[in-house]
Amino acid sequence: MDDVRKQLRDAAAEHRPDRERMLARIERGMERDAVDPGASSRGRLPRPAPWLRIAGATAAVAGVFALGGYAVASVVQGESPPPGTVGTPPAPAPSSVPSPSASAGGDENAGPSAPAEPAHPSGKATKGTPDGGKDQGADRPPKKSQPPPATQRVAPDAEGVEDGYLWSDGSIDPQSNDFWAQSTLTFKTGKPLTALTVELRVAQTGGVTDTGNWRSLPADDFTVSVREQGGGLVYRWTLKAGRTVPAGEHVFAGQYNHAEGGRDAGEDTYAAEATASGRKAAVRGDFARTS
């Protein structure tokens, strides 16, 4: 196929049509018609004027040349692109941005204009502070999100088992056995409490799963939650708004299963924080007994 295209290309380049010879043949034909004027009366249509015939013949010759050249060029250049294909011209190169002095028509001798502020990595310009310094807000590290209140420890700053009007103790119930145990929290308050939150944390020593909880105070006065956190169980009792705890001794208990055998409660802890007469108190303790 490449050889055929090459031959056609060479033939098209060497071809030189003899225009004078073709026009001479047309003139001879017109002279022959002029010698036999009666030809039009023998069923032929009237012939147009000589000048119109010459012009028509010239146009026909030109059309033949153009059609032939187009055909040869199509073969030489190969197949045309498929229908519907539209070429996309390359995008023009972005024009340079004129300097502020040039766009404003200022004096060329006025000196170079002040450089523009560098763009911020996000695409926005960095604004300066009134004193010309850099805005430090963009460089500040994001604030660390605080854990939700439900996962924060109760009374993290408590220093002991007693604080003012509030006293506490933690122990393992004597009815605990080789498969089940109860952690008992005992609180004494010398004043009525308007706020109270109690937390018990039972370490995961193997097979520890929740089986229930209770309190000596009315159940409707507290919101109770039990969740797994930090490799153990967390029990929490929170006094509802508008409720009060009377002065006296009160008990909270968490119950759970555990792996067979005696369980060491040395890693278990409890904590509580309370409010009475506008004064806060916080206590914290642990368990030393093994069930």
Rank of each mutant, 00 (worst) to 15 (best):
A195S: 07
D178S: 13
A138K: 15
A102R: 14
K188I: 13
L185A: 07
A12C: 08
G232Y: 00
F287Q: 05
D286T: 03
N213G: 01
R16H: 04
L166C: 02
M1P: 04
A125I: 12
A57M: 01
T186P: 11
K144N: 00
F222A: 09
P141S: 08
F187S: 06
G111S: 10
G56R: 07
Y70R: 14
K188G: 03
A71H: 10
E260T: 05
G128C: 12
P192W: 00
G69Q: 04
G132P: 07
A110V: 00
P118C: 02
S176W: 01
R243Y: 08
G230V: 12
G87C: 03
E162K: 10
A102W: 10
P142T: 09
F222L: 05
A203C: 09
L8D: 11
G285P: 03
R263V: 05
A253E: 12
S103E: 05
R53G: 05
T186V: 15
P83K: 04
K188T: 13
E20G: 10
P148H: 06
G242Y: 03
F252E: 12
A102Q: 10
S168A: 14
K134H: 09
Q77N: 14
V251Y: 04
D220P: 12
T189K: 09
V75P: 01
D157A: 14
A62G: 13
R243F: 09
G78P: 03
A276V: 11
P89E: 03
D220Y: 01
V161Q: 06
G278V: 11
G111W: 10
I172Y: 08
D210H: 09
A203N: 11
A282N: 06
G128N: 14
A116G: 15
G105A: 12
G78N: 11
P90F: 09
R9L: 12
E267I: 04
N109F: 15
A13H: 03
F287G: 12
R19Q: 02
A60V: 06
A39E: 02
T205P: 10
R42W: 11
R263E: 01
E273N: 08
T194G: 00
P83E: 05
L67M: 09
A288R: 07
G230F: 05
A55I: 11
E249I: 15
P118H: 09
G266Q: 01
D178W: 13
Q146H: 14
T275G: 12
